[in-house]
């Protein structure tokens, strides 16, 4: 029993990271129908920024986290502005290929600057382990879970209650109608990139702390898994990204714990295929019918 509980805690920690990345995928997809393949790299940039602020500026964890989020938000906005906005009316495949190009660009610039080697993430907070019977929880796990909860609550508030959040939803469901309301669609899209990127960066800093190792290619696999999480939950749906992320995180740890860690990725992709065969719109997706 505690074994299961232990895996659940490990899985939720990892899944929270996936969820943080998946949110950006899903929000961007929701608003401009683009799978932003460079999103995983923003997560990596976030981790490097955190590393940089802690190592070079001796900042403590929280300010480093916040600064990494802010700068990454800005970077996300710049990427959208330079790479995607000029292609707003192009075929989707064009934008998709551009996104892959942006991803390669970021990775290779980072390799050039920092080499491809991994480096140790500073222990800005000392690791502590709490044991409850045979259950073991680290303060890192608690930090991940609590930070994710706070960020998601904040996101929920922004999306549901603020004017910008409502505009985001309006642009997502009907861009033309949003324009007819006088909604500034470009600004709204920029805002979406900012939020998505900030969340991914938070995931990057948290994972740096958790796994204690970062490198320029670290965004590729988690990015892919977060994308799967977003699709799994129902792309375009914010709760779907959270559910999908946690689901994949938990599955991965459970499969590893059962001794199949070699197959954990195959397992994740397998799940994706099965679920999408049964329910193409994802776990939380419904087939929306509009009244005419």
């Amino acid at each position: 029993m505690t074994g299961i509980l232990q895996q659940l805690i490990n899985g939720i920690s990892l899944g929270s990271i996936y969820a943080l990345i998946a949110l950006g995928y899903t929000m961007v997809y929701g608003i401009i129908k683009l799978i932003n393949f460079a999103h995983g790299d923003i997560y990596m940039i976030g981790a490097f920024l955190g590393y940089y602020f802690i190592n070079e500026y001796q900042l403590s964890f929280l300010p480093a986290l916040l600064l990494a989020m802010i700068i990454s938000a800005f970077l996300g906005v710049v990427i959208e502005f330079l790479a995607y906005r000029p292609l707003r009316n192009s075929a989707r495949i064009t934008v998709l290929i551009t996104a892959i190009g942006v991803s390669f660009l970021i990775e290779n610039v980072m390799i050039k600057l920092f080499t491809a080697n991994s480096r140790a993430f500073p222990q800005a907070i000392e690791q502590q382990k709490f044991t409850f019977g045979s259950l073991q929880v680290s303060n890192y796990q608690l930090i991940i879970i609590v930070t994710t909860l706070i960020l998601m609550t904040l996101l929920q508030f922004i999306v549901q209650k603020t004017k910008m959040g409502k505009a985001m939803r309006a642009v997502s469901v009907d861009t033309d109608a949003a324009m007819l309301m006088g909604i500034n669609v470009n600004l709204t899209i920029s805002f979406t990139f900012a939020i998505g990127s900030a969340l991914a960066a938070a995931g990057g800093v948290l994972i740096g702390l958790y796994y204690n190792s970062i490198d320029p290619m670290m965004g590729v696999v988690p990015g892919l898994k977060a994308f799967i999480a977003a699709v799994l939950g129902g792309i375009g749906l914010i709760p779907g990204a959270v559910v999908g992320g946690l689901f994949i995180g938990i599955m991965e740890t459970v499969v590893s714990a059962l001794g199949f860690s070699v197959f954990k990725d195959a397992f994740v992709y397998g799940i994706l295929i099965i679920i999408l065969l049964i329910k193409p719109s994802g776990l939380l997706g419904k087939n929306v019918k509009e009244k005419v």
Binding site: K163, K166, A167, R169, A170, V173, D174, D176, A177, A178, M179, L180, M181, G182, I183, N184, V288, E290, V292
Partner: peptide
């Protein structure tokens, strides 16, 4: 389009195009 709305012109589009998933009140706020 934004400036056009600001100048005092507003459109009810064909097929209504209400914002699904937003409440009635939120639609009006938009």
């Amino acid at each position: 389009p934004q400036k056009i709305v600001a100048s005092g012109l507003s459109q009810v589009p064909e097929g209504r195009h209400i914002f699904a998933g937003l409440s009635v009140l939120e639609n009006l706020e938009m």
